[in-house]
Design a protein around this nucleic acid. Structure first.
Lengths: 347, 347
DNA sequence: TTGTATGCGTTATCAA
DNA sequence: TTGATAACGCATACAA
């Protein structure tokens, strides 16, 4: 008797091969295939196991993450929201996080807030609707409680570089205090004795606040060194140049400590307009290492952030929470590394 | 008679509010809610419509994209695969694509191939398993046919900046030929008459090949100007410096045309080691505008790519295909823009 | 015009 | 140990 007319192994609509196809080919039930996939440890008759296995291989079957997510409520997705992908720091962190996710079998969904840094709440909700299991946030946290709400819904949240007000969550960042102390200490040690800390307006961004506070603390501890702060905005380039002029006019050995690479760009621009030379007319250290730091002027001394580690650790924290770790919010602070170049040359 | 004992509006497990919750609250069936959501045009009794509407609002209901994707086979997800997120060009394109996606109600899933640019096939399959509706690729295409396979499965593919061999797909890029001609023409016009085109080894990357070919064509058309090509690798910085030395030793007015920003970085480094000055000892134009181009040496002349438009157009192409547009593969070439600075100053 | 029932691809609960 | 079967949240053919 001829075997029952086997339907051609017709790939399910959309070209997708489903667990049903595998089951049919292996001559078992869908449940068995599912068990084979998920709980291999559980005893399966070796013969059946191999049948299923080869059917899977023959068909090239891969489970549908969407269906799995729907059923399990878990998606193997991690959401990463950054205030601005244009920021090399954020991209570097992203890379670290991505690697760690891949290693753990997770996929990163990126959401970039763009220009205004607004819509954080929307971003969180969008990502949440895709059942992301957790969130890594490198954002302002201005959208009161949006992240907290996510956390309350049971989605672990890890903050990178920027704390959110009233938000109890794991936090991963460079040690801002240490970084500033290192940078300022280096300048003073090299003989620069009139320091100007240039930063963007704090505007509630914790890293900016912490760096500024650390600078003030440094100044208080080193009364022999002059120390002032200046807030630079994108629109007022002239004000920065003016500030630098006054700094130098004071007649000591002036140096700038830039709070991040955006500020570094502005300071370099101003210094070039003034026709000054770094390391001679003005000492300089900037937080954030960039690919161009060594190429500007005589080379810019920087504090490099361990961006890759930051991304990896943020992911690691998240994954631990996903695996049920239940401890109070942790803070992980990593040291920056001073990259000495000619802009801070010995006086 | 008391209404049947209403179960407390219990939010579905995981805290998720489902269409069933809305239906119950509005006192209608799930189907009605679904119709309200999808085909508002279809006649609904106004009274019911408002009841549903307010129930949705009251509950803060949002449909689950996963469930929708499962049911419809469409996910409102677009996959973007980049060879290297570290590349500012790719990030800029990403931003444009992201904006366009958001405008159209799509979400971008980013996949970064990282270091080796390997695993393109894996990336495509991973993304495909999440039911992305289409793919934007800024990759090597070395993984023979992986993209083509996706395309065959009915997922539209758009290539950005890099063509794939044997791949018939929409292609969006800067006009490489025009860009090189513009850059080289500018140098010659300014009196630089011994040109060196520096590029990474082509290695099958179409944009590199096209730029090199365009340079050779330019040289052929301008026999009075010297013109050579040099392939620079990351590991052999010395070779580049040596090449520059020879270029200058030839005694004419030497200039470099860098094929992208990575090469620009290397050339700047070499020139600084040699102690030369751009615009005096060596003319320079680099393809790719960067935030630091104006800050290096006397300022670097560049050809800016319309990255944002590239990303938007790539997305637009994809969305058109998704809406059923069926025309042969298109090529969209955008002009670069010359940003003149002192590195190419008049001789 | 609205409701019922079915299925998308999986997993989980029960029997067998 | 394995197999029916019922969800997961949604959309739709069909019935009312």
């Amino acid at each position: 008797m001829p075997s029952k007319p086997t339907l051609p192994v017709v790939t399910a609509y959309g070209g997708r091969i489903t667990i049903a196809d595998v089951a049919e080919k292996a001559g078992v039930s869908k449940a068995t295939v599912s068990r084979f996939l998920n709980r291999r440890d559980e005893l399966l008759t070796p013969e059946i196991a191999t049948r299923v296995e080869s059917a899977i291989a023959a068909l090239g079957y891969t489970p549908s993450p969407m269906a799995q997510a729907l059923k399990r409520g878990r998606s193997r997705l991690v959401g990463l929201i950054v205030a601005d992908v244009t920021n090399p720091f954020s991209v570097a962190v992203l890379r670290g996080a991505e690697k760690a996710c891949q290693d753990a079998g997770y996929l990163l969904m990126l959401f970039n807030l763009g220009e205004d840094g607004q819509h954080e709440r929307d971003a969180i909700e969008t990502l949440a609707s895709y059942q992301v299991e957790g969130l890594i946030l490198n954002t302002l946290g201005r959208d009161e409680g949006a992240a907290a709400a996510a956390a309350r819904r049971g989605r672990p949240v890890v903050l990178v570089d920027r704390r959110h007000a009233n938000m109890e969550a794991d936090f991963v960042s460079i040690d801002n205090q240490g970084a500033v102390r290192m940078a300022a200490g280096h300048l003073v040690e090299r003989g620069w004795d009139d320091l100007l800390f240039v930063t963007e307006p704090a505007a509630g961004v914790s890293s900016r606040e912490e760096r500024a506070a650390a600078f003030r603390a440094f100044v208080a501890a080193h009364p022999q060194a002059g120390g002032r702060c200046f807030e630079s905005t994108a629109t007022e380039a002239a004000a920065l140049a003016q500030e630098l002029r006054e700094l130098r006019a004071r007649g000591r050995r002036p140096a700038v400590l830039a709070s991040n690479s955006v500020i570094t760009l502005r300071v370099v621009d101003a210094v070039q307009r003034l026709g000054w030379t770094f390391g001679r007319d003005l000492g300089f250290v900037g937080i954030d290492e960039t690919e161009w730091a060594s190429l500007v002027g005589p080379g810019l001394t920087t504090v490099a952030q361990p961006t890759d580690a930051l991304g990896r650790l943020a992911t690691a924290c998240l994954l631990e929470r996903l695996q049920g770790l239940d401890v109070p919010p942790r803070q992980i602070l990593l040291s920056g590394q001073l990259v000495v170049r000619a802009s801070s040359a010995q006086q």
